[in-house]
């Protein structure tokens, strides 16, 4: 999944427009409920578990930052068997 597809996922889950992949989600107008919903949807889709500590600054995290986290998580292979 590339960045523009991922931005689409963010848009679908959070009901916002991702005008800039690097912009913090909170500045795109994503509220706390939708932030949680987004993380859970991403975990489902990619069959990964994202570390809540790493996500603690999620309000500062952008769509690009979140996708990077997902890729890092997949690369570690910790979830390789469950994922792709």
């Amino acid at each position: 999944m590339d960045q523009s597809q991922f931005d689409q996922l963010v848009e679908e889950i959070c009901a916002v427009q991702v005008t800039d992949s690097e912009m913090p989600l909170v500045d795109l107008g994503v509220d706390s409920l939708h932030t949680v919903a987004l993380v859970m949807a991403v975990e489902d889709r990619f069959a990964v578990e994202l570390d809540p500590d790493v996500l603690a600054d999620l309000s500062l995290t952008s769509s690009a930052g979140l996708l990077k986290l997902v890729h890092e998580q997949l690369a570690t292979g910790a979830n390789a068997s469950a994922g792709s």
Binding site: E12, I13, C14, A15, A41, D44, R45, G83
Partner: peptide, 11 residues
Amino acid sequence: PAALTGSSRGP
């Protein structure tokens, strides 16, 4: 959104 209705699309 799936996450708000409890449905899951799978990995």
